[in-house]
Design a protein around this nucleic acid. Structure first.
Lengths: 163, 163
DNA sequence: CTACGAGTTCAAGCCAACTTGAGGTCAAGA
DNA sequence: TCTTGACCTCAAGTTGGCTTGAACTCGTAG
């Protein structure tokens, strides 16, 4: 099988050519030559890209991935490192679950104002105490459709106070 | 002299003064005056900051938060929006759980090389097919909405997503 | 009155992971 | 041969959420 060129790799892997060049520059992948101007890659590139994608999805940074995927194609997966990352993910998951439950509760809470909901107020307190902050490391943000904004609820009561 | 100045707010809330200024510039909080050069805030600032922190932890962007926390202190929480965000978090959680399990398995897998582990190879295939990617943030533009549509896992094939 | 320290403004910098733009080069088709 | 169009390189831009630096302005202690 002939070595695929960058166009072919991009097409088959779904990874944009610009990203492939970027990855090469970063040392995550290596091209094996040129055909005209076009880079040629070893057919193993596809597996390597899948590995990179998998590692990214697991929260590894490109730098970490480069180190794991040493020069050669075969990953030098350090089990302790994998476990540590799993642990890290676990904490992120816990945090997100708490947030998800909070949101669900808030969406369903019968209290006239969220500020009067004890559950919500408990979360607020936690947030105020910094308990919900994500430990510095990767962030898995979520984003989605923005529903039409409501006109602010009747500005009846004054600002809530506390303390 | 009841209103706390920026130093006091930073101290009590743990939010750096630079962040408070940044938030004010972004319209997330408002100062109510000055004492000398120092900004003064309404005591309600603490609750507001907690609200911001909570929303951030739930995955809302500062812009979204600003819109929810309209001018006055009271959040105009749109239940549909909260539900949507919870749903979004739920998907992120699912994805992270899959990754965590994959990592744990990889760390414990008895196969001589990870590449020979069927479970690992299955994940690799998913990654190669783009099934593990972070869903792209979608704003209000409709149009290219048809894209991902990835059913559970049909290694059936074509690939050309993205862009 | 003067110096000082801590706040202020505005602009720029940072990080990650890419993307975009300007201008260059190459192989192949008319 | 010349043109075309795709890929190339290198630099700079993007996004989000802040932080940092330089230069400035106060109120207050001395």
């Amino acid at each position: 099988m002939k070595d695929p060129d960058i166009v072919e790799v991009a097409r088959q892997s779904g990874v944009p050519a610009s990203t492939l060049r970027f990855y090469e520059e970063k040392g995550l992948v290596a091209s094996v030559g040129r055909r005209g101007l076009k880079r040629l890659f070893d057919p193993g590139i596809f597996e390597r890209l899948a590995l990179i994608s998998l590692a990214r999805a697991s929260g590894f940074s490109l730098d970490e991935i480069r180190d794991m995927l040493a020069a050669d194609g075969r990953p030098s997966f350090d089990r302790a490192l994998l476990t540590a990352k799993a642990e890290e993910l676990d904490q992120t998951i816990e945090r997100l679950i708490a947030m998800r439950e909070g949101l669900r509760h808030a969406a369903a809470c019968p209290a006239p104002s969220l500020m009067e909901c004890p559950t919500f107020r408990r979360m607020l307190r936690l947030a105020g105490a910094g308990a919900l902050e994500q430990p510095p490391k990767q962030t898995f943000k979520a984003e989605q459709v923005i529903a039409p904004a409501l006109p602010a609820a009747a500005p009846s009561a004054g600002s809530a106070r506390r303390r």
